[in-house]
Write a protein that binds this DNA or RNA. Structure first.
Lengths: 259, 259
DNA sequence: AAGAATTTGTTCGTATGTATG
DNA sequence: CCATACATACGAACAAATTCT
């Protein structure tokens, strides 16, 4: 890496138009190689200071390199702890019981969710695509709760979800739900077992908010799933959720019978 | 913004635990406000140096603030020129009226399809994600047929599909299939009834080829579905297909039982 | 349980390279 | 050629979160 720095020497006679890539990209490339060759998911990278010393560059430069890897979904950082190699894409099976957290925990993955935002929405301000799934009664009442959650797997944000919830069925959901598994909370507090009725599949580009939460680049592709959840055995739609997830981190899967 | 900096003063007597956000975020917020209030798309921001002076912070700090705006898609930077407010984001248009809803169970059975390309592939050149689903026997044989089809609905191209087909089971598929429903052709010619075993869901950005065939912009989001097809009742995988479809034209849907 | 050590996060400063007009 | 503006890189110091002792 020191070759790169020689560029800064003030030798007048050398018309070196090296046109090399910036150091931080070279370091990022080398780090990525190191990770592939000698590190497993979950391993911690060497500290920024050590890496800086090893590559003979400033700590800022290393930080910028690592930032590239974060953007690429290869590592995650945590203050006070370190920089951790992330496991490969995780496969997630779509089935009628939409219990995200539970399903993943059963896969042996640590999963959790935090609340990013919540509010009460006038029904008229609910996206039309969502409105259509709620029935007249709810429509008359005029309000829905919107809860935005961010879901993590192994401390990596993978999925930003807008939940639209019927206040008729779940009166204080926007205050009582404080994170974790939403469906479990609903089941415990309201004794409703929810089940998926339908899922719509689409794709979008990450906007500013999504890129911020999901730690991905603006305009990177996201899988968009809209799922309709109703009370088991009934036709009453209680929740419509719209999720945006990073395809590089989360691979949805559908299995057809036979299993 | 200078209040923020007073935090660094070494006044021992003030236990100010301001708990404020980092300066770069405060500056970013203020900049965003400025842009909304007094700048039009296309306008250039003040230079980093001026902004640094105005906010009383280091230029690095301003750079980091602006970086936030870049990530959020609010501005773009150009070396030697300046930082420009971006024209109102071109909203990705979901065309509600002209959208086709398609159930995944019917995928691959559509009638109108044309062949874009076909060839025999050495197994080693098959994408790894596809390779893994074919068993040893096919692997030994060493070749797969790749057929690329473009599917239309109402004369609009909606879906570009790469079919990877086992030549062991479908010896002359690459010459005998001439368009139309692929699964029907396979059923008629080889008496194999295919059934879908699994679907993987992802999202990508349209590349040159895809945008050409699908008549969409390069880098527009596409739904990517990989489906694994085997002979009904057996475990033998005969076809793996990877489809890219326009979410504005084609809405996939999964229904869970109860239907 | 308290404190030290470690690691990432933020901010300042300075210098030089490179693209634009 | 020159002035301007962004890009890269170095150094130093302290803050904040986590882990270890």
């Amino acid at each position: 890496m020191n070759d790169a720095m020689s560029k800064r020497n003030t030798c007048l006679d050398k018309p070196v138009k090296l046109a090399e890539k910036p150091i931080y990209l070279q370091v990022a490339y080398q780090l990525e190689l190191d990770i592939k060759l000698s590190l497993k998911p979950g391993d911690l990278l060497d500290s920024e200071m050590n890496l800086a010393e090893r590559f003979g560059v400033n700590r800022h430069t290393v930080r910028r390199s690592i930032e590239q890897l974060v953007q690429a979904g290869i590592v995650v950082k945590q203050q006070g702890r370190g920089t951790q190699v992330v496991s490969n894409q995780i496969e997630y099976l779509l089935n009628p019981s939409g219990k995200f957290t539970k399903n993943l925990n059963e896969l042996g993955k640590t999963a959790h969710a935090i609340i990013v935002d919540k509010r009460i929405l006038d029904f008229k301000n609910v996206p039309i695509k969502v409105q259509r799934y709620f029935d007249e009664k709810t429509h008359d009442q005029g309000y829905l709760a919107e809860v935005v959650t961010l879901r993590f797997m192994e401390n990596v944000p993978v999925c930003l979800i807008h939940h639209y919830l019927s206040l008729a069925h779940l009166p204080d959901i926007h205050t009582s739900y404080l994170g974790g598994s939403l469906h479990q909370h609903i089941s415990e507090r309201f004794s409703y077992a929810l089940e998926r009725q339908q899922i719509n599949i689409s794709a979008t580009l990450a906007d500013g908010t999504e890129s911020m939460h999901l730690k991905c680049a603006v305009k990177s592709p996201l899988v968009k799933l809209q799922s309709i959840n109703r009370i088991r055995g009934s036709r009453e739609v209680v929740e419509v959720s719209v999720s945006h997830s990073r395809p590089d981190r989360l691979q949805y899967q559908i299995d057809f019978k036979g299993e």
